[in-house]
Each structure stands twice: as C-alpha cells, then as structure tokens.
C-alpha cells in the first residue's frame, strides 16, 4: 500500500495546554488543502473526545463544537489507542464521535499508511 495523506498524532488532554486545539487547527487546514488527514489520539489525548465537556468555567472554548464539524471537513478517520482508553477506564460510548479503535500492535502499520506524521 502506498503511503498517502497526513496523520496528526495528539497526546495531550483537552484543556491543560493549547495542544488539542492546535492539533485540530492543523487537521482542519489539511482538509482545506484537500490532503487526506487522520487524527490519532494517544495517551491523555483520548480525553479530547469525551462527551459533555464544560470548559467555559475555565475560560476555554468547548472542543466538542469543533470536533463535531470534523465530518463536514471530510475528516472521518479518527483513530484512538485501545490501551490509552483502557488504562483510563474509558470506552467508545464515552466519546463524542465514532472512532476506529487501534491496538498497540497495529500502530506501526497505521503510521506507515501515511506519507507524513505530525506530532502536536
């Protein structure tokens, strides 16, 4: 399989830093430039997709609103690490969008399917 598109890897919780928002901005820009883009959520990055966030109490914008627009930008491949979900007691029912759950052993293949990997 020839590698194409960009995989954006995000590992940070949604509001402790700007990383989640910065990764989303990069993904949306890829889409605007018609580059196939996959988002990979690892480690605390899986918290980004949790339903029911209310960050306005800490003066932050709700990421869920932007995330729900991802399908409109043709960003439909959202991959989530199974071990990251498991170790945090989370399941796909806790997440705001349908995701592809990826086992640790499958991660190298996922990365190699893409032409570039950006870690944000």
């Amino acid at each position: 399989m020839s590698a194409e598109g960009i995989l954006i890897m995000t590992r940070a919780a949604p509001y402790g830093s700007s990383a989640a928002r910065d990764a989303l901005d990069a993904a949306l820009t890829c889409s605007v430039f018609e580059q196939p883009v996959t988002l990979l959520f690892l480690d605390d990055g899986v918290f980004q997709l949790l339903k029911g966030q209310s960050p306005t109490e800490i003066s932050q914008k709700n990421l869920n609103a932007v995330q729900q627009s991802l399908p409109l930008y043709d960003i439909e491949r959202l991959c989530v690490s199974r071990s990251s979900l498991d170790s945090r007691g989370l399941g796909t029912d806790d997440l705001i969008l349908p995701v592809e759950v990826v086992g640790d052993a499958e991660l190298p293949q996922l990365l190699s399917q893409h032409r570039h990997v950006l870690s944000i």
Binding site: D25, A26, T29, F33, Q35, L118
Partner: peptide, 11 residues
C-alpha cells in the same frame, strides 16, 4: 503566514 504553509510543506 498561515498553517497552509505547513500543509504545503508536507505536500
């Protein structure tokens, strides 16, 4: 410049 320059760099 914009983030588009990052995407263009990838291309």
């Amino acid at each position: 410049s914009g983030l588009g320059q990052l995407v263009e760099a990838c291309i």
